[in-house]
Design a protein around this nucleic acid. Sequence first.
RNA 1: GGCCCCAUGGUCAAGCGGUUAAGACACCGCCCUUUCACGGCGGUAACUGGGGUUCGAAUCCCCAUGGGGUCACCA
Length: 480
Amino acid sequence: MNNIKVRFAPSPTGPLHIGGARSALFNYLYAQNRQGSMVLRIEDTDLERSAAEYEQEIIDSLTWLGIRWQEGIDVGGGNGPYRQTERLDNYNGYVEKLIREGHAYHCFCTEEELEEERRLLMEKGQIVKYMGKCRELSEVERNAKREQGLVPTVRFKVEQNKTIVVNDLVRGKVVFNSDEIGDFIIVKSDGIPTYNFAVVLDDHDMNITHVIRAEEHLSNTPRQLMIYEALGFDVPEFAHISLILGSDRQKMSKRHGATSVVQYREKGYLPEAVFNFLALMGWSPEGEEEILSHDEIVRQFSLDRVAKNPAVFDLDKLNWLNAQYIKKQSIDNLGEMLQVFLQKSPHWDAVRTLDDVSFSVLIEALHDRLVCLSDVVEEIEPFFAFPVYDGEALEMLAQEETRQMLAAFLEHLPDQLDLDLARSFMKGFPKSVQLPGKKVYMPLRIALTGKRQGPELPFLFTVMGPKEVRRRIGGVRGKE
RNA sequence: GGCCCCAUGGUCAAGCGGUUAAGACACCGCCCUUUCACGGCGGUAACUGGGGUUCGAAUCCCCAUGGGGUCACCA
């Protein structure tokens, strides 16, 4: 055990996003690979948008994915509390220190004033930033403002013309100049610290050694670095991983379809598949094998192999991976996993009354056909839905040849069927009626299901049982 | 718009000065299968452009172009 410590620090303003999950995953993988630990911290300083229910949902999503942490909101640890709104007392000392040492000051500018300033700068084509109106306010002036009822924010005083270098583990040196950055707010007028401030304090107080987060935070990093310096903190390592984009190369958002982890969970994606898939978004293993177990990914993970370019979310590939993971499941296991989806089927009553053997056969028939678990609802249709015949189907069934074949079939069909029996029977039947397979299989399939495609006939027979098979074929023959 | 990041097939990506420029998904074809799917085999398809550096550049540098991010009392 070394002292490597990472954190995932979501704000509970919505369900866990695919991109957030990927950030969490990379943190987790890095920590696991290096025998370090991980912290889950909730950044809920946006009182407006944060909601308690999302906190639990995020925890559930991470847990579902198989991501674990050693310290955090739900498991505790020696650096708590892990919810920023519960850490307010921790921040005060730092604010006072910054003000005392001239690194920060109270600002009484109103929203309207700030907006006006921005508008003016925009018009003049200058850099839009806070110009430091309240920077040199005297104590007398400040008291006057307070008496007017103005509640101040606290701004960090940005030293001008300083070069700030972010040493990024995936991007290398990234250079910024402080002139582009205006004095920024570190404590809001409601007394709550802003993200850029709280994140530094918490990462420091929690002994975070590696900050692995999405690239959208890269431009914020110089601000944070200035705070680290003003407070005399050691700076952690940074790694900014690029974003996940939608198919139109824009940042993933709701209009790109399912973007939250729960949505994939509900659709019936396996956590192992999503885990594997997310790992492959921006990271690549050394070998050619891309289907990798949790342990294998942990073993191989390294920030050196994290790509710098953004990645378009590839649903096709996720689908393929998920199908692969489904195929790996044993029949029993798959049957178990399918229960909750099966219950949503209109044929649930029929499914639940199946005996164990027939149920296994049903699952075996579906095993290689499912992309995600929810597909099962559609895939079991041929087994249970009463056939509906279209014109083409009726035409085939009306042929004399077909009618005779079906009559013969009914005669030969055993009264007891298991999968092996059904297979051998189907293999031998065409010969026994001296017909080519072509004249037998497709008409039978159509008679039974009304469809030209679907599971193999022996599966159909076995799950339906001889009685139901007779009933359906009898029904067809009744149609004159 | 300023600043920052990025740039290899449709997508994910390997490559880190000398390769016939991997592999995966998707797509197409063939095979297996008297259905569809699964599976097997094969195929189409890429270094954004222009300048340098170098004996030699997908790899290094510069510019252009394109895409993305960020400039909040959001994180």
